[in-house]
Each structure stands twice: as C-alpha cells, then as structure tokens.
C-alpha cells in the first residue's frame, strides 16, 4: 500500500541537511512504502519566537532538502504570524514562487485564535494553500497563550471555511479534539505525534469520516514505521486505510 506522510521534519536542529542524510531518509521511507513525504521545517530550531531572518533560514534549509530529492519531498512554508502581514506575505510569496512549497506550517509562535492569523489565512486563500496548525490539548499543558488547543484550531477552521486546515497530532488532540473537528468539512486531522493510542484512529474515522484523516508520523520524533502500523492495525476497512495512508493527502495536496 502506498503511503504519503504529511507530517515530517526531515531537518531537525540542522541534522538532515547533508545529501547523505537526505538519501538515507528517502531510502528509509521507501523501505516502509512511503512514496512522498511532506516536510514541515526545522520548527524548533530557534525556540518559539522566530525572527524574519530565522524563518527564512528554516525555509531555505527545507528548500535545500527538497532540491536534493524533488520527487520525494514537498515542503510547507514555516511562518511566524506575529511578524505581521508584510513579513508573512513576503515569505509565503518567496517560498511558493521560488521553492514551490505547497502549504503553510504554524507551530507555537502564537495561538491559532489570535488576530495575527488573519494575514496567514489571506495568504492561504491567495495562493490556495492548506494550513497545518500544530495542535495539542492544553487541558494539562496550560500554555494556551502561545500553544494551540484543538478548540482553537477548530475556531480557525470555522472562521475560514474556504481554507483547508490540518489539525496536527491526533493523539495530542485526543477525543476532545476529534469532537471539536466535527461539522467542519475544511478541517482535517493528522495522525502524527504521541504514542499510538489504541482506538483513537477508529474514533476519528467514526466521527469525521475517513476522508478527513491524514496519515502523519512527526518523524524524527516518532518512528515512521510505528505510525504506519498504527493505521494498518486499526479496525478499518482496506478502503479507509488507503484513504488515510495515501489518497486523502494525494487529493488535498495534489501529490499524485
């Protein structure tokens, strides 16, 4: 079964940039059946409040990896919404038009409910890009001033129904995250992050439909093989598994 992993960090803390490292990752992914990886950038390299120069550095590193294996990697443009409209628009334009990036990635610079998200969503609309928002339940973490809870990601999707949004980290969002995502057809959930909790993928499919669940691993923090077997081991039909592992991402991200 072909697999598209929509949540990877091929470069993390500057590791993964060397051609040999890129070749190894491509071979590793292919050995697991992963035909394409969506890279999201070195998003923790400078903490949580990146300057414009640091954002450019991360995206240029991503572009370097994409150039080394263009048939395998496609990257999302990493952004710090707090830098303002001009910086956001400039970076999106640069990454889309120069590097061919295919989405926007948001981490923990701010909460997705913040007003500074408006230019990001304008950019998503203008360039027809999906937005992948790091999301994690804040019930226990209590970092909501900058860390997005699944309820915040759902609010973002509600405010911008014409933009495809991916709520990252199914395990971190949990049951509550899945329930928040109900009734929002522009909101997808990716299965990355955390231990492969039994029953959660099935719960997401039951409440959202298999067409709104995307396979992701969050490598290198997580094992790509473990993430795939989580889907293959779930009580789903082969058609549902195929949608999650490949077809949904292929359609949403135009990755044939």
């Amino acid at each position: 079964m072909r697999v598209i992993d929509v949540h990877t960090h091929p470069v993390m803390f500057k590791a993964g940039l060397k051609p040999a490292e890129v070749r190894w990752l491509v071979a590793h992914g292919r050995s697991l059946g992963i035909t394409r990886m969506v890279g999201l950038g070195d998003v923790l390299l400078h903490g949580r409040n990146f300057t414009a120069e640091q954002i450019v550095e991360v995206n240029d590193d991503s572009a370097r990896v994409q150039r080394l294996a263009p048939d395998y990697f496609r990257f999302f443009c990493f952004l710090n919404p707090r830098l303002g409209e001009r910086a956001v628009m400039r970076e999106v334009e640069r990454c889309v038009e120069r590097h061919g990036f295919i989405g926007l990635k948001l981490e923990i610079c701010n909460n997705a409910r913040d007003a500074c998200m408006r230019p990001v969503m304008q950019a998503a609309r203008r360039w027809r890009l999906p937005v992948l928002q790091h999301s994690w339940s804040q019930t226990n973490l209590r970092q909501r001033s900058f860390h997005t809870d699944p309820a915040d990601t759902a609010l973002l999707a509600r405010r911008h129904p014409d933009v495809a949004i991916i709520m990252a980290h199914l395990t971190g969002c949990g049951v509550r995250g899945v329930l928040e995502a109900r009734g929002l057809p522009n909101l997808y959930v990716d299965t990355s992050g955390g231990l492969p909790e039994a029953g959660l993928v099935e719960f997401a499919v039951e409440h959202l439909g298999a067409e709104r669940v995307l396979h992701g691993s969050d490598l290198p923090f997580r094992s790509a093989g473990v993430a795939i077997e989580r889907i293959k081991g779930a009580k789903l039909t082969p058609a549902q598994q195929r949608m999650i592992l490949h077809d949904n991402a292929a359609r949403l991200l135009n990755l044939g």
């Binding site: 492969p196 039994a198 989580r230």
Partner: peptide
C-alpha cells in the same frame, strides 16, 4: 491501551 501492532514495528525499522 497502546496499539501493539504499531509498537511491534518499533524495532523493525
């Protein structure tokens, strides 16, 4: 509590 099949894949790759 955790998917045994997924965990069993951990050592393989």
């Amino acid at each position: 509590m955790i998917s045994a099949r997924a965990q069993a894949a951990k050592l393989a790759a």
